[in-house]
Design a protein around this nucleic acid. Structure first.
Length: 745
DNA sequence: GCAAGAGGAGTTTTT
DNA sequence: CTCCTCTTGC
């Protein structure tokens, strides 16, 4: 069977393109990964390139793994010489190989976001910076976005005092990182980019080597990633970029859709291939998606179609409250699993923000339906794991002050804050790391610090020659971490996790081909890295699964963002309310597209909605609530504009469709006449019909200037009485009741 | 050195 | 409301 079987004409055209740069506009569910992997396999199979000449880059480790997996199932080749990975993973690989040229210590460590923040806080202490005025998070953001634009401190223009300070802090942060031998995520990219820029021999080497570069999710690339690709591919470069502008939902973290059209210009792209046939969803879902996304102005243009039938209509439910909405979902899930025999794991509940999961979780829990929530702490981010990793990092690089500070007194060894301060002063004075400053200490604290240093030295000595898993095991035990959590009556999970870390090290060693007799600290000649350093990189770059544990067969709960790339038989998109989805922060705002133009921020929200609904294979439920608990207050929202943008003929309203949300100030009696609603409670707010409140809270009203809105609150009495109305896209307004010309909707 | 309590903030997130 | 961080007090 040929690789090219089972490809539609557009896919085939993309897979078999000659050596030239191309942009593949791949719609949701159009077989994007299939095309990417088939192209790689085809290039290799037809002898146009060897595995070593291919570089494929993705955004997530999951996507990279999936790609490698598929390639190796198509071709009997060794994928180790192939560069397939995330931007960060590939940059790390390059920097490990050329650490000297890149100006890094061989054992450089990678800071994740947590580490970066603690590094900044530590720096603030030394420099005596007011963390209120210059918030660590703000600085981290500032540094990150500077680096993503390729800017070093000297390149950043500061227009005011605040920003001048930020630049100085950026400079100090850089110096600290360099001294400690650590790099943050953005630094991995920028260093690699600068390395390629400064070192012509190296640049040409890689340019000649990677004859074919393939990029997944191209719409998500930021400025630096794009420039990196450009530099790496070189003048003769050939880039196969796959992306979907309609699924660009990460502008807020620097993704630049404009890279797509810039790519076409920069690389003289002759071929823009559209993959529009969808293999995932039924017709009704696709029609809704197409019509919805057509409301966006900034688009390259694309319409999905399918051979499959229309499927069931999209069902829409207006809930009285968030609880009622959850009740509706539970009810439907029960029906789906019992009457239609659907597996729970084929059902996803999507929402705009994480906080919305609570109500649904509660309801699922009460109903005894197993579920799992995506988006919690990931394995390598857990405190006990970070502690263990800190010991390991100190073995690899004793100058890593972040790691030092984390574990110097954990488990407690009587080294207090004052001793650390003293030590820090000495280290700062001498321009050396905390660890190296220990011998300079005197007084009482010296003894305990010395003991800590001896522990590290002893561990380093005793683990020499050990395999990776044995090394990790030894460190977890000898550091006292295991014992510490074993003594803690609530430490069971942490003990389990530490043991799991040893397992993780063992399976990592196997997966990476480090055999039992490979010493964890011995350089692997082929990979130019020690197994320990490799494992530590892995821990930083691949933080692990972030789904809370629960059995198989669980309903999947996640944000619409987290659902990107996934698909489910049945999808519930919840909280479709103005202010929530689209989120209030996006309404009325514009964002820079990156090419000089600006677009409405709500367009990104619409794309997010597009992503959400195109996750559904067969069944799609949309819901919203008239009132919901938010930040400890009951809030009233209008129905989301996105619902109103959907074509009526693919929808089936399970509750009467009203002119708009809460149009008649209805009470519990009305609710009973509606499907299912009464049993789920809620609606209490609607019983108040005080004479001085002509429009009860929750009522829909129309205002000549602001349009339609929902009554949210009252204030004052008599002639002074004011009414608060949520006008959705016009915002929240307080109006004098006696003056405002209102009418019921 | 740790636990309780005040205080503040509160989209989306991968590496 | 609820979660997280930082401070205060024993």
């Amino acid at each position: 069977m040929s690789l090219l079987d089972n490809l539609n004409p557009e896919q085939l055209a993309a897979v078999t393109l000659p050596r030239e740069s191309a942009l593949i506009l791949a719609g949701a569910g159009s077989g994007k990964t299939k095309v990417l992997t088939a192209r790689i396999a085809w290039l290799i199979q037809t002898g146009q390139v060897g595995p070593g000449g291919v570089l494929a880059v993705t955004f997530t480790n999951k996507a990279a793994k999936e790609m490698l997996h598929r390639i190796s199932s198509m071709l009997p080749i060794n994928t180790r010489s192939m560069w397939v990975g995330t931007f960060h993973g590939l940059c790390n690989r390059m920097l490990r190989a050329h650490w000297r040229e890149a100006g890094l210590p061989q054992a450089f460590q990678i800071l994740d976001m947590q580490d970066q923040l603690s590094a900044i806080k530590r720096m603030y202490k030394v420099l005596n910076i007011d963390a209120e005025k210059f918030q660590p998070k703000q600085l981290a953001y500032f540094i990150g976005s500077a680096k993503e634009q390729g800017l070093r401190p000297k390149d950043v223009d500061a227009f005011d005092e605040y920003h001048r300070m930020m630049v100085r802090l950026y400079e100090a942060y850089e110096a600290q990182c360099q001294r400690e031998g650590v790099v943050d995520f953005a630094e991995l990219l920028l260093r690699s980019f600068e390395l390629l820029g400064a070192n012509a021999a190296l640049r040409e080497h890689y340019q000649q080597r990677f004859r074919y570069i393939l990029v997944d999710e191209f719409q998500d690339t930021n400025t630096l990633q794009y420039q990196w690709l450009k530099r790496l591919s070189g003048p003769q470069g050939c880039i196969f970029a796959v992306g979907d502008d309609d699924q660009s939902i990460y502008a807020f973290r620097g993704a630049r859709v404009a890279n797509m059209s810039q790519f076409e210009r920069d690389f003289d792209v002759q071929n823009r291939i559209k993959l529009e046939q969808n293999y995932r969803s039924v017709g009704n879902v696709l029609k809704a998606a197409n019509v919805l996304i057509a409301n966006n102005k900034a688009r390259l243009g694309k319409d999905l179609w399918t051979d499959a039938g229309e499927g069931e209509p999209i069902r829409v439910y207006e809930a009285i409250s968030d609880q009622d909405e959850a009740g509706f979902i539970i009810d439907r899930i029960k029906k789906l699993t019992t009457e239609e025999g659907m597996s729970r794991s084929d059902i996803a509940i999507l929402y705009r923000s994480n906080a919305q999961s609570r109500v649904v979780e509660q309801a699922l829990f009460n109903a005894g339906i197993p579920y799992r929530v995506y988006g919690g702490l990931r394995f390598f981010e857990r405190a006990e794991i970070k502690h263990a990793l800190a010991y390991l990092r100190l073995l690899d690089n004793a100058d890593d002050d972040n790691s030092f500070s984390r574990v110097v007194n954990f488990p407690t060894r009587g080294i207090g804050a004052r001793s650390i301060e003293q030590l820090q002063d000495l280290a700062t004075q001498q321009g050396i790391s905390l660890y190296r400053a220990i011998p300079l200490m005197d007084g009482r604290a010296q003894a305990s610090l010395q003991k800590f240093a001896q522990l590290i030295e002893r561990l380093r000595f005793e683990t020499r020659g050990l395999g990776l898993a044995e090394l990790v095991d030894k460190v977890v035990v000898e550091s006292g971490l295991l014992q510490h959590f074993e003594a803690d009556k609530d430490g069971e999970d942490r003990v389990e996790n530490l043991k799991e870390l040893v397992n993780a090290a063992a399976s990592f060693a196997v997966a990476e081909g480090y055999f039992q007799d490979t010493a964890a600290t011995e350089m692997d000649a082929e990979k130019l890295i020690t197994p320990l350093a490799d494992f530590l990189s892995h821990a930083s770059l691949e933080a692990g699964d972030n789904a809370a544990a629960a059995g198989e067969q669980a309903v999947q709960l996640m944000t619409a963002h987290a659902a990107k790339g996934l698909e489910f038989h049945c999808v519930f998109v919840t909280g479709l309310e103005e202010g929530l989805f689209p989120h209030e922060n996006s309404v009325g705002n514009t964002i820079e597209a990156g090419d000089g133009t600006s677009v409405e921020a709500v367009e990104e929200e619409r794309r997010l909605m597009y992503v959400a609904i195109t996750r559904a294979r067969e069944q799609l439920f949309l819901s919203y609530a008239q009132q919901r608990m938010l930040h400890g207050q009951i809030r009233y929202h209008l129905r989301s504009r996105f619902l109103d943008e959907l074509p009526e003929d693919v929808l089936k309203w399970l509750t009467p469709k009203r002119a708009h949300i809460a149009s008649s100030g209805w009470d519990a009696l009305d609710a009973k006449s509606w499907n299912n609603t009464a049993s789920f409670g809620g609606g209490k707010a609607y019983t108040q019909k005080a004479a001085n409140r002509p429009y009860p809270i929750g009522t829909g009203v129309e205002h000549a200037k602001f349009g339609q809105g929902v009554v949210v609150a009252y204030e004052g009495e008599g002639d002074d009485q004011r009414i608060q109305i949520n006008f959705g896209r016009q915002g929240m307004k307080w109006l004098m009741l006696s003056l405002a010309k209102l009418s019921r909707v």
